[in-house]
Design a protein around this nucleic acid. Structure first.
Lengths: 181, 181
DNA sequence: TTGAAAACTGGCCGATCGGTCAGGAAGGAT
DNA sequence: ATCCTTCCTGACCGATCGGCCAGTTTTCAA
């Protein structure tokens, strides 16, 4: 088969279990041993495939980071008003699609600046906030940050809401707080 | 002097330094040794005055918890509409007054249910959410939770905003999202 | 001044953490 | 079957954590 399937299979299982555990207990409360046990391998194997615990986190966040980066590219040539509407729609969609992953971000925030592995994701997130603001007014920018914080918190406790319910809630909340409906 | 001033003096210094460190680095990233060093005593002394690390956290949160509890008492006999307006004003005020303490709560959230020491604070916080909703409509209740999450996040990074700026931002954001202005 | 209570401390404990390393097992091309 | 690469592991390391305890110092009322 293409390249080495065994390598990818193990890596994928590690990432899958890490995502599940990060969601359940948070990043800090999940040890490499926890991930290894859940993935059916040894802790040394996890560290063979990933260069440290932050690298595992980066792998977990990678699909969301890639989608967000693509989203920001698409918004490049838009006007401020267009970009805001685009951001509301696409970010709501992104939040729903990666609701579990977003949940993981919660207890990384205090040390997120010390994680070069996800610096691009953070940078894109900040740019998205600017788009959401739809204005250079400091108040509107703060409100956009307020909205994102609310949305991040709302993605916690997955399973309490269906995807459609979450999508609807996010859309309403963003439009109320951003005054663009 | 009244009772034992030496005891209270040490306890107070420990709590003061713990609050500062919890704000700066977060609860989990702050060790008992860090607190002890900052307070100018030994780790054993911290554990002599407080029955474990969660007890230190509870002491740090205590003033805010007491004010919140009093606030909930005051709202007892109000109508739903009155209670909502009351909640918006008082919670904004509370958030500003204890902005540092609220910041501390952030990285406790994943395990907040396993901390009996602050169960009352959590319970009052949930009741406050109900008041803010101003309605039994599930959507409005979710939006209230959304607003609280946004406000919690906004209290992060103290010092970037003055108290008045924060108060104004919270008031505007709450009224926009709760549709009660 | 004295002696008991309160306040405090150094040293130690078991557990757990992320991470390293030498070497064994598995797998595929020849 | 051979051999080299890839994959994987048990054992171990140093550091750090929260917490405990025996014993010392300080405080203060009698």
């Amino acid at each position: 088969m293409a390249a080495t399937p065994v390598r990818e299979r193990t890596r994928h299982e590690i990432v899958r279990q890490a995502m599940r555990l990060f969601q359940d207990r948070g990043y800090n409360a999940t040890s490499l041993q926890d991930i290894a046990s859940a993935a059916g391998c040894s802790k040394a194997t996890v560290l063979y495939h990933f260069n440290g615990k932050p690298a595992v986190l980066a792998a977990v966040l990678e699909p969301a980071a890639a989608d967000l980066a693509g989203l920001m590219d698409s918004a490049a040539g838009l006007s401020q008003a267009e970009a805001q509407e685009f951001a509301i729609q696409q970010f709501t969609d992104l939040a729903v699609r990666y609701r579990g992953v977003i949940d993981v971000l919660q207890d990384i925030l205090p040390v997120i600046d010390e994680m070069p592995e996800i610096a691009q994701l953070v940078a894109d997130g900040i740019r998205l906030t600017d788009l959401l603001a739809g204005s250079d007014d400091p108040l509107e920018r703060d409100l956009a940050k307020f909205a994102i914080n609310g949305l991040l918190g709302e993605c916690r406790h997955p399973g309490e809401r269906t995807d459609d319910e979450l999508r609807n809630l996010c859309d309403i909340a963003l439009r109320r707080i951003l005054r663009s409906a």
